[in-house]
Simulated scan of single mutants.
Amino acid sequence: MALNLDTIRATAERVAASHHLDVVDLEFQGAGKARALRVFIEKNAEERAGLATKATAEGAEEDVTLPKGVPVETLSGVTHEDCSAFAQDFGTVLDVENLIPGAEYTLEVSSPGLERKLYRPEDYTRFTGCLVKVQTFAAINNNRHWQGRLTKFEGNVVTLDLTAIKQKGKAKKAVTAAEIEIPLANVEKAQLVAEF
């Protein structure tokens, strides 16, 4: 029986929904006894909206779970308890349905972190205003690595404000304007850059 990541992802999303969570990413690595299934989860949109409301409520007590200066939208809102409960339920389903053939594997569940990767078009819309690192498939102005503030995502084009961060290396020489537009189809990798 071959490993079917689409079936595993669909199962993870079903279990996550029952915990008010979303699956951000899922990866399977390793071989033999060193195989690991990693699942990155976050609170669903409704739960994240509740976090944002709580953080901005006037007169609300200071919430020690929200780091000072970090935009609430960049936080996944996931706690250790969320990861533990999801891992227990998801692990049981994986084993009962025998979705991972072979005897041994490790299930790792965590938050995507402050420097999370951006995968879907919705991620670019959600994180507009945040600092990002982008690596392109094809060079733009002789450079494939860009950092800046994500100012706009329209028509599957990512717009970065390059003045928001000091450019280094080839990017410093490649900057000919304050902004750069990168077609989403040319984005090989993109992730947030934590700012405090």
Score class of each variant (00 low, 15 high):
Cys130Asp: 12
Thr159Asp: 10
Ala138Ser: 09
Leu99Gly: 04
Leu114Ser: 14
Glu122Val: 15
Asn141His: 00
Val158Cys: 07
Lys117Ala: 15
Val96Ser: 12
Leu107Pro: 13
Asn141Arg: 02
Lys117Leu: 12
Asn156Lys: 00
Lys152Trp: 04
Leu150Cys: 01
Glu97Tyr: 09
Thr128Val: 02
Phe153Glu: 08
Thr106Pro: 07
Ala164Lys: 07
Asn143Leu: 02
Ala85Pro: 03
Leu160Glu: 09
Glu97Gly: 05
Gln147His: 12
Leu162Cys: 06
Ala87Glu: 14
Ile140Phe: 05
Leu107Gln: 02
Ala139Glu: 03
His145Trp: 15
Val158Phe: 02
Gly129Arg: 10
Glu122Gln: 09
Arg149Met: 11
Arg149Asp: 07
Ala87Ile: 00
Val158Glu: 14
Thr159Gly: 08
Gln147Gly: 07
Thr151Ile: 06
Ala164Gln: 05
Phe153Gly: 03
Gln135Glu: 15
Val109Thr: 08
Val109Trp: 13
Ala87Leu: 04
Asn98Glu: 14
Gly148Leu: 04
Thr159Tyr: 07
Leu114Ile: 14
Pro112Tyr: 03
Phe153Pro: 01
Ala87Arg: 03
Leu150Ala: 04
Thr163Leu: 10
Glu154Leu: 01
Gly155Asp: 15
Glu97Val: 03
Tyr124His: 01
Pro101Tyr: 10
Glu115Cys: 00
Thr163Tyr: 10
Thr125Cys: 10
Phe127Lys: 10
Asp89Lys: 09
Glu108Lys: 14
Arg116Ser: 15
Thr128His: 14
Gly155Gln: 04
Pro121Gln: 05
Pro121Cys: 10
Gly155Val: 07
Cys130Gln: 13
Gly91Glu: 05
Pro101Ile: 00
Val132Ala: 05
Leu94Thr: 10
Lys117Met: 14
Val109Asn: 08
Gln135Asp: 09
Asn98Val: 02
Glu122His: 08
Arg144Pro: 04
Arg144Ala: 15
Ser84Tyr: 15
Val93Tyr: 10
Ile140Pro: 13
Asn141Pro: 10
Phe90Glu: 10
